[in-house]
């Protein structure tokens, strides 16, 4: 459970992700209008807000899939906004897991191969050792019996758990979750959230874009409310969900509760 004590430990050394005045537009559409955000190592931060408020775009800026027009992004020692070459971006992405709304597993590879491909082909790790680890990860997401199945044979919830295992196989220091339950049937949402809950408990740094408010309140150390490409309010879950300062936050939370 997040407490005010954990929040007060605000040393710079603890900050893993720092965004400063990040701007990004697609054509005339200003998606990010000066976002500032700090995420400490080991924290789970949930980004909530109405659709089109730039939440997913924000995540894609952090792992360099999108490049902001202005502003600074740091992940650990890496100045993401300054990265130029493909090899620098690859080095960054190896450290950051990304889990997508539509799972995006490789449909031509079995579940096991989906998990193995990046560690063996990209990191060049030994297959035997990696496979043992991949099977452990599958057990962790309760899918050890599906190692030889193909993504098309799995339910959405199962695919999403494989996608999480695939991200974890790279030993990321940060995992970005982009509305990972939005495409799922209600009955399978719980199994995916249970996996994420465990990861947060184990101290993995996570940034979650989510519409699961109950879940966000339960697992997050901090909640960020965005609207119209700006961070409107951020704070501990109790504050955002039960005592929001900003009127726009209040109306968003109340609309959900109503």
């Amino acid at each position: 459970m997040p407490t005010t004590e954990t929040l007060s430990l605000n040393h710079d050394a603890d900050v893993l992700v720092a965004l400063k005045n990040v701007h990004l537009s697609f054509g005339d559409n200003k998606v990010l209008k000066g976002v500032d955000l700090r995420v400490r190592r080991g924290d789970a931060v949930s980004i909530i807000g109405p659709s089109g408020s730039g939440k997913s775009t924000l995540l894609r800026c952090i792992n360099g899939l999108l490049r902001p027009e202005r502003g600074e992004i740091r992940v650990g020692e890496t100045a993401v906004h300054r990265l130029q070459s493909e090899s620098e971006l690859i080095a960054l992405r190896k450290r950051i897991g990304f889990v997508f709304q539509q799972y995006n597993l490789f449909p031509h590879l079995s579940v096991l191969e989906n998990i193995l491909i990046a560690p063996t082909r990209i990191l060049g790790k030994d297959r035997g050792e990696t496979e043992r680890e991949a099977r452990e990860l599958l057990a962790r997401v309760c899918l050890e019996h599906k190692a030889d199945a193909y993504p098309g044979q799995l339910s959405g919830g199962q695919q999403q758990r494989v996608a999480i295992a695939r991200a974890l196989a790279m030993h990321p220091e940060l995992v970005l979750f982009d509305e990972v339950t939005s495409a799922l049937d209600p009955e399978t949402v719980g199994e995916v959230l249970a996996v994420i809950r465990e990861l947060v408990k184990d101290g993995l740094t996570c940034i979650l874009v989510t519409h699961e408010m109950r879940f966000a309140e339960e697992v997050s150390h901090e909640i960020v409310f965005t609207e119209g490409g700006e961070i409107v309010e951020q704070g501990i879950p109790a504050q955002i969900f039960h005592n929001p300062v900003n009127a726009r936050t209040r109306s968003f939370i109340n609309a959900l509760a109503g």
């Binding site: 090899s87 950051i96 990304f98 449909p107």
Partner: peptide
């Protein structure tokens, strides 16, 4: 090949060449 599949490979640290070899060409062949 869906853009999202490409995005997933890039997020795992695939280079353009690795993306082509391990994801785009195997799917394109099918």
């Amino acid at each position: 090949v869906p853009a999202t599949t490409r995005e997933a490979a890039l997020s795992l640290g695939f280079s353009r060449v690795e993306l082509l070899r391990h994801v785009e060409l195997p799917l394109a062949l099918r």
